[in-house]
Each structure stands twice: as C-alpha cells, then as structure tokens.
Computed example of a mutant assay.
Amino acid sequence: MQILHALSFLLDYPTAGVIEANRDLQKIISESALPGEDKNALSDFLMQRCSGDLMEWQAEYDSLFERGRALSLLLFEHVHGESRDRGQAMVNLLKQYREAGLEIGVRELPDYIPLYLEFLATQGDENAELGLQEVAHILALLAARLEQRDSNYASIFRALLAMSGVSIDLEDVREQIINEQRDDTKEALDKVWEEEMVTFGPDATADGCASAVNKPSEGQRKDQLVPISWADFKDVGQGDVQRGNES
C-alpha cells in the first residue's frame, strides 16, 4: 500500500530525501483512496514543508516529537508509559514482526509508528486496515494534540484514522484534552529529569529511536495476517489526560 509507505516516510525524521521525493509523494497522495479533504490537507502539508527551510523543519520535528511524552511516536508510550509491561509488549511485537518475515535493525524500537506503518504496508490492504484499527484511539489522540499545537502534522494522523475506517468523534477527544497540561515546557522537563532515576547496564532502556525506517525487502512475506497484541485503547486518551492533569 503506497500511501502507507508515504505516510511512514513523512512521519519519520525529515531529511533532504523527502524534498527530493516531493513530486512522487504528491502523486501517491493524489492517487490514494483517501477522502478529498485528507488528500488536500496532506498535499498542503507536503507543499508547505518542502518549500521551507529543512533545518527549521527538523528543529520543529524535534520540539514536537522528542520533547515530552504526549506526542511520542512510540505507540507503547501511550499504553504502558515506563512500566515493565512496555518492555514485554515490545518483545511480543518484535516477535510478531519476525513471524511475518520482517527483520528490523537493532537500533529500531518496534513500536515506532513509522516502522509500524512500514510493517502494515507489506501485509495487504485488509490487514493494514485491521492494524490501523488496533491503534485508532492513539492516532485520534495524537491528531487532537497536534491540532491543539497548531501543527499540520495532525493531517497525517487524521488521514491514518480515515484509512482505519474507525468512527471516532475527534471533537470528543479534543474536549478530553482541552485542560491537559503540556509536558514539553522547560519546567515539566526539569521535573521529569529530577524524578526519573538513571539506570545503566543491560536493563537500561534506550531513549528515542533511530531516524531512518528499515524498509522490508521484497522477499518478505506480504500475505500473512499477524494480529498485534494491544491493550484496550478505549480508555487510552482519558488515561493520558488524567496523567497530564496530575502534574
């Protein structure tokens, strides 16, 4: 599914390669089965980003997705936080990737959204839709939070939500987060730094993720349905809001 490859590319760390591929990406968007509103929003996103300064784009990307947890591109961050359950969930997801014939680099975290989209893009349209349905509530939450910050990255998550076929009232999600305290301010980041203990050794978890998505090879199986083990996402948004309000 080309549109999933394209959206994965656009959600990964911005490089000159995105600007060079601008015309091809616009073509994929225009030929996709997305609703016209989502096509126009994605086309505008690409036009605006590729006509601006790359270093400014990269700096904005870092400030959005690398500071705080509210906009983390790691799926399990929104489900398990820093609990031990997150580590086991990633092991399980990695196992499921491998059972589908996919191998990822040692520096990749399996719940990194661009990587997850690359995986779904190799599994056929029906399986890709099912995979998006399993994370639809996280996609809606990220879309609403990005809208709140006036970021056009929200268009990517709205498009993914449309592709999932799941009917989620975004207005309801917006209401849930309206009083949510931001976790990317200097004060919030300082508080996290003070509260979190630094661990070393084999049990230490890596911060962040690699900036390049590993592309599955053409020889990897595309016809196997691999159900992903997720938590029940019905309460994910509300749980995040409650955590934000507690700080």
Rank of each mutant, 00 (worst) to 15 (best):
I19W: 12
L139P: 06
R67S: 10
K39E: 02
E31I: 00
D150H: 09
C209G: 01
L11R: 00
A206F: 06
T122Y: 09
N152T: 03
T205Q: 12
R145K: 13
H5C: 05
M197N: 11
D125F: 13
I113Q: 01
I178Y: 05
G87W: 09
L11W: 00
P14V: 07
A159P: 00
K234F: 06
L115I: 11
N22H: 15
R23N: 10
I177C: 12
A128Y: 13
S8Y: 05
W57P: 00
N40E: 04
A21P: 14
V236Q: 06
T185S: 15
E108W: 03
I168R: 08
K186H: 14
A100H: 08
K95Y: 12
E108H: 05
P14I: 06
L10V: 00
L130S: 13
A231V: 05
G81W: 09
A212V: 07
L130G: 10
N92V: 10
N152W: 00
V91I: 14
V241G: 12
F233Y: 11
S247N: 13
D207K: 15
F157Y: 10
L74M: 09
D150E: 07
N214I: 05
P110K: 06
V166T: 10
I178K: 15
T199W: 15
V226W: 00
R67T: 05
A206G: 02
A21T: 15
R182K: 12
P110Y: 06
P227K: 04
D150C: 02
E20N: 10
D85K: 15
V198M: 09
R149W: 03
A206D: 02
L46C: 03
S151R: 02
G17L: 10
W57Q: 02
K215M: 01
Q224K: 12
E82N: 13
A140V: 04
C50A: 03
G201C: 03
E31M: 03
L161T: 06
S155R: 03
A6D: 00
A100N: 09
V173D: 06
P35T: 04
S229C: 11
R23E: 10
E56D: 06
E126S: 14
V173Y: 13
E60K: 13
Q123R: 15
R23T: 10
Q58G: 01
L75F: 14
P110D: 02
F157K: 02
G165T: 04
D111K: 02
S32A: 09
Y116P: 09
I19Q: 09
T122S: 13
A188C: 07
M163K: 04
W230K: 10
V173E: 06
E194A: 07
A100W: 10
I138N: 08
E129S: 14
D85V: 08
V79S: 11
L189N: 12
L54R: 03
T185R: 14
